[in-house]
Amino acid sequence: MSATKPTNLTREFTDAGAEFATITLTNPPLNLFDRAMMDALVADIAALTAQTPRAVLIRAEGKVVSGGVDVNVFDGLTVEQGAQLWRDLFGRIIHPLEALACPVVFAAHGLTLTAAFEMSLACDIILATPKAKFGLVETVVGLTPSMGGPQRLAERAGSGRAREFVMTGDLYDAATMADWGVVNAIHDDLDSAACALVTRLADGPTMAHAATKQIIEAWRSGGVAHADSVTPEVSGQLFGTADLRGAVRSFLEVGPGKATYRGE
């Protein structure tokens, strides 16, 4: 384990003054999800929840994004302790990450295994380099992925693909993941592409992006009918925002695409 914190949370501003944040995994060579990494991510996500920026980027330093979970975390756990581990990781990492009221982008430049891949699936958009590889390889220790990976992979790629991915424990390249609808885009210069996208999203109508997330979450939990039932109220609230009022005025006065947003 690194003597320093295994993640780094930074906050920056776009040229237009929109705040965005970056969480970087900084515990090479493998960026393993040990207790220290998990605790650091819990703290980082809690900080973003308390003071939410207008976009978030999650990335990693080193040759790989992550070699997965440090297996020492599992050693000797009882049935109840194992169940509590997953409750904690859902409740303190996955669900709060999904609930952030802003776009969240995950950038994968290399090998992305188990917990790191499951965390990426809780993000809104996944970018990758052509050399990135992804895997849920928990079968090597007789486990199934338990931070939401199978169900979120099934949502993006279909249940048959998710079964194959998890049961074989094979590694899949970025092109395959893009073909399956898991990876949104592949870039040779990932850092530049990720930065450009996060900047664009941060400069956008943040409250509208948050509403989009709420509507899609309603669909995920209850299907189209449930999403339809919440959309009028969720979307209706946007008419009380300065961003919508200003953008409508801008559209009417000078045409589309010229509005600026403050996240208000």
Rank of each mutant, 00 (worst) to 15 (best):
D243R: 12
G236Y: 14
G222L: 09
P6E: 06
T260A: 13
V69I: 15
I215R: 05
V166S: 02
N27L: 11
H209T: 03
K258W: 03
V105W: 05
E233A: 15
G263M: 11
S221F: 14
H109D: 07
P103Q: 05
V140P: 00
G76L: 10
F117M: 10
V73H: 04
D88C: 07
A46T: 12
G82I: 04
L111H: 07
T14D: 01
P53Y: 10
R54E: 02
D124T: 02
T7P: 03
F33Q: 02
R54T: 03
A174G: 01
A211K: 04
L48H: 02
F33H: 08
P28C: 08
G149P: 01
N72K: 14
L32D: 05
T52W: 08
D70R: 07
K213C: 06
M119R: 04
L238R: 03
K258H: 09
R92V: 04
V71A: 10
L77T: 01
L41T: 06
N72H: 13
T4Y: 13
E19D: 06
F74L: 15
T52Q: 12
G142D: 08
T139Y: 10
T112V: 12
A115T: 04
L57P: 01
D203Y: 03
L113V: 03
S192M: 07
T231L: 15
L136Q: 03
G181Y: 11
I45L: 12
A211C: 11
T49R: 14
A60K: 05
E61W: 04
I23A: 05
T52R: 08
I126C: 06
S146W: 09
K63I: 07
E217N: 14
F20E: 00
D191V: 05
T206Q: 14
F106S: 06
L201V: 02
Q237C: 08
E217Q: 15
F13S: 12
G91Y: 08
S235A: 15
D70S: 13
R92N: 10
L113T: 00
R35H: 10
A174N: 03
A99V: 07
L143D: 01
E217T: 15
R262N: 09
L153P: 00
T4M: 11
L113W: 05
F239K: 09
L30R: 07
T212D: 11
T24G: 03
G110R: 11
E61A: 15
A211N: 03
L85F: 11
D39C: 06
G142H: 10
G223V: 06
R249Y: 11
L153S: 01
T176V: 09
T231D: 06
M37W: 10
Q51L: 11
M167P: 00
V71R: 13
V137P: 01
A259E: 03
D228N: 13
E253R: 08
L85Y: 04
T176N: 02
A16E: 06
L9R: 04
L252F: 09
A211M: 11
R245C: 12
A55M: 04
N72I: 02
T144R: 12
T22I: 14
P53F: 13
D203P: 01
A208L: 15
P29I: 11
A40K: 06
L25D: 05
V64M: 14
R92P: 00
A157N: 02
V248D: 02
T26P: 02
F90L: 11
P150R: 06
F20G: 00
D189F: 05
A60S: 15
H95F: 14
F251D: 01
A227L: 11
A107H: 04
V198C: 01
